[in-house]
């Protein structure tokens, strides 16, 4: 387990030295500031639309960062042959996967801190009423969700040969779940068997990313999510992370390295 931190640190350094995060952050900030500068009927302190746009951009950026950073980890190690000197050290393939997961997840967390800090500054500038605890909950839940996504993408990176196909599939799946995951049970109930059972099975099997999306609560100043459900959501995320990482380990264990 001692090898996890050095592996994670390499991923963090890679994120800091690549341009992806900076481009996305500047884009998010620029678009948010532009939208914030628009005058609507000479009315001041219109805040919610700006928060919605900013949070939407943050979510899109976080999905892109999580998926692109994770999808290239194992394939790049293979393609660049850095996997060989790495596995020649006293580290197992499972530990390499765990280390990569930890690094990608921490990288996502770091990005989220910066994005949400910007969001906080934007909110202060627009509205005097801000629920910082709720924002903290939103950040925590968002980070937990990205943990599932990183683990899922890591599994994809050992299953699919090309990072591009893995990234595309993960992006489509994650956006699909965010938009439709909550409603699959309603769709299932309107169908006849066996489609109903199949859709319901999918509904229970997929990781429900939308649970972690509390943007509406932040935008519309609804109260805090109770601590119990938040803790359960984090455990739910941890369970899916464990399942995906275990599956990745089982696949990676038997694979040829080149």
């Amino acid at each position: 387990m001692h090898s996890l931190w050095p592996l994670a640190l390499v991923v963090l350094k890679e994120l800091v030295r690549r341009k992806d995060f900076y481009v996305l952050f500047v884009l998010t900030a620029l678009l948010s500031v532009l939208m914030g500068s628009v005058n609507f009927f000479n009315t001041a302190q219109i805040a919610r639309y700006l928060k919605e746009i900013c949070l939407a951009l943050i979510w899109i950026s976080s999905l892109v960062i999580a998926i692109t950073t994770t999808a290239r980890q194992i394939p790049a190690e293979r393609e660049n042959r850095t996997i060989f000197p790495l596995l020649a050290k006293p580290v197992s393939r499972g530990q390499v996967l765990m280390g990569k997961f930890l690094g990608c997840w921490l990288a996502c967390g770091l990005c989220l801190l910066v994005f949400y800090a910007f969001f906080g500054v934007l909110s202060i500038g627009r509205s005097a009423e801000n629920n910082w605890l709720l924002l903290g909950q939103a950040l925590l839940l968002h980070w937990a969700m990205l943990g599932i996504l990183v683990a899922m993408t890591l599994l994809g990176s050992v299953v699919f040969a090309a990072p591009s196909s893995n990234g595309t599939i993960c992006f489509i799946v994650s956006v699909g779940i965010l938009l439709l995951g909550r409603h699959l049970n309603k769709v299932a109930l309107q169908l006849a068997e066996p489609a109903q059972s199949i859709i319901y099975a999918v509904y229970f099997a997929i990781p429900h990313f939308e649970i972690f999306d509390v943007r509406d609560l932040v935008i519309h100043h609804v109260g805090l999510v109770p601590a119990g459900p938040v803790a359960l959501a984090v455990l739910y995320a941890a369970a899916y992370v464990a399942v995906f990482l275990l599956a990745a380990r089982l696949v990676f264990r038997r694979q040829a390295l080149n």
Partner: peptide, 28 residues
């Protein structure tokens, strides 16, 4: 709620009917 997941998920999105400006929304 149609199932336990539906019930659990309602903690994380707005499931109460309020209007802007009527004072019912928490904090506003």
């Amino acid at each position: 709620p149609r199932d336990w997941l539906d019930r659990f998920g309602r903690n994380f999105y707005i499931s109460r009917h309020t209007h802007l400006g009527d004072g019912a929304a928490a904090g506003q």
